[in-house]
Design a protein around this nucleic acid. Structure first.
Lengths: 340, 340
DNA sequence: ACTGGCACTCGCCCGGACGGAGTGCCAGAC
DNA sequence: GTCTGGCACTCCGTCCGGGCGAGTGCCAGT
């Protein structure tokens, strides 16, 4: 038996009421609060079907119904109307992000803004190096056998690493290295650099090859191999909203998961172009987050994507509102990056 | 009436037992677990005095006793024997910190290590710019009217800021700026730079003065005014140990406080030379942390101090162990910094 | 100054009773 | 065939009272 329109309407009503009240919702209350045009008894029959199909369940016999993960999924996919943000919200976003002075600042402001607007935990990934291009490489002598490698990416990210040289190296040599390296790598996508770096070593005069090799290995590490992804997190205090009910009583596993950068990257980092991804409860691969939902999307200047951002909260969350906010913030951040 | 030795011994026993078991401790259990050499009745009399003096209290009539903040304070000041770290712990610290490749890495490893060893929330401040010296200033042209200012401090910290120039500036001009700026500022304590920066502008040829002024204002902002302090945080999941009992039932205020960098800096940033500071419950000025204790200390190469680190946990914490660990970690980090 | 004894106080736990919300089902109406 | 009103039922949450036990304060005795 398939679900007719009214049953879907009932499901929507259940989701909306449950999200709002945090309490199992019964047939009578449903009819009162929504104009369904039928009696509670009819709604009960519909509920029985919805329950059989796995979209809702009863915490106990003779309690109201609560949406299951599958119920939320159906709601998100087919039932939720997109909420437009209020002009006030749009203005708040713009104003909040406008004052940012550098990339760090942009990311921090964004993550706080997101946490505040959605009242959830927010995560923002720094523009991924893998998706950036080299704008400039700088070599700064620290001592005769050490230099500081500073890479500036077009997304505004700056990474630095110390390079231990095999032997004393003159300032002129350093200048020479810098020239060569920049000539070869400036403007290149970081993902494309490994063969170029190798070529740099190969093309080098033999007497300088060892030095160049040192530099090259650090370069490769910095640019590619190193888990180059950085994150900002905010709003953990929002996990405590809704008392002990959300997250099946224990914040522990969630807090643990939030400490693992790798996990967070998995959550918000896998970005397909311009989609907003919603993972509900069990759909999360991470066991610790089976009681949580994640709404994430990519951001970047124009239509390209340089990083991900998103929020995490209880499965019982306002999906339409959250999705709208996440999208809007992502777009504003993208615009901001485009201006540089 | 002052407290004789046995009463102090009783207080110590109460603190130790309560920290270990998380349950109010009664006179009988105390006598059983510790060799006090007196009967429960005597201990009860001592307890009555201790309670009158404000060092312990009863959650309810006819329950065991629990230390008050004042009790913990007395315990920390006069009763706790310093615990030496086990060789295994020392080795673990060394091994864990040894692999660090740069400052970011050092800080991250340190904060995770601290959280793990103490099983509390750990906070580590990056070496404060105010306490660092300038190692090098680099100016990288981004476009004809923009350059990236990169400052490298002797502590390994690297800060960058974008500078908007008043008009097109040639590469040679940039080189000239760099030379001048470095000549003036390299090696100087950041705290001493403001007058030097001003001098730079004053000494400048009039036609370049506007450009230099731009740079100078960003320099001042970056070096001094800007809240330049960075932090790393780890172990928030440890807040959930000890169930709902710690932090009077709600993590909320604590999580909120941990989100405020300003608050955290206050907690661990006010470093006096080589003291370990313990703030217990009400001694914290921040209202949200009235149920928490903070153990903090400064670290740095040799005897100088460049930043603070510490842990935060419930007032019911193992003070001797925590203090020992915080001190040890601070020393190892200091040694590590000294090697660079 | 310490100890043993004793009465007392409470918090915690258990079981049972009660009220209420919500359900499932059925017979009847449209 | 679909919806509705009614009814009996289930079960949760809460409240109440009693028993238990841990722990105390006090007092008389050593």
């Amino acid at each position: 038996m398939s679900l007719d329109d009214r049953k879907l309407e009932v499901l929507r009503a259940i989701v909306e009421d449950y999200v709002a009240t945090q309490e199992p919702v019964g047939s009578k209350a449903l009819v009162e609060r929504h104009q369904l045009g039928v009696s509670p008894a009819t709604v009960r029959n519909d509920m029985a079907v919805l329950e059989e199909e796995g979209y809702i369940r009863q915490p106990h016999t003779s309690a109201g119904r609560v949406p299951t993960d599958a119920g939320y999924r159906l709601f998100v996919d087919r039932l939720s109307r997109v909420k437009a943000l209020s002009p006030a919200e749009r203005r708040a976003i713009e104003r909040f992000l406008a004052g940012a002075v550098d990339l760090d600042d942009v990311v921090h402001r964004t993550v706080r803004l997101l946490a505040q607007l959605t009242r959830q935990v927010a995560v923002v990934q720094y523009p991924s190096l893998a998706r950036s291009s080299v704008r400039h490489l700088e070599l700064v002598p620290i001592s005769s056998t050490r230099l500081m490698l500073v890479m500036i990416a077009d997304t505004g990210r700056v990474e630095q690493r110390l390079v231990e040289l095999p032997g004393p190296t003159s300032n002129d040599d350093v200048l020479d290295l810098r020239r060569k390296v920049n000539a070869k790598l400036t403007g290149e996508k970081l993902a494309d650099t490994p063969p170029l770096v190798q070529a740099l070593v190969d093309e080098c005069a033999p007497e300088k090859r060892i030095t160049m090799a040192c530099l090259a290995s650090v370069l490769l590490e910095t640019l590619v191999e190193r888990s180059d992804e950085r994150l900002a997190l905010a709003g953990t205090a929002n996990l405590t909203r809704g008392g002990v009910l959300d997250f099946q009583g224990s914040l522990r596993p969630v807090l643990e998961a939030l400490e693992e950068e790798v996990i967070l990257l998995k959550l918000i980092g896998e970005v397909e172009p311009s989609t907003t991804r919603v993972r509900i409860g069990d759909e999360n691969e991470i066991d610790n987050l089976r009681a949580a939902s994640v709404v994430s999307t990519g951001y970047g200047p124009g239509t390209t994507i340089v990083g991900g951002l998103g929020v995490l909260g209880p499965t019982r969350m306002d999906y339409p509102g959250t999705i709208a906010t996440v999208r809007a913030v992502a777009r504003y951040v993208g615009d901001l990056l485009a201006q540089n």
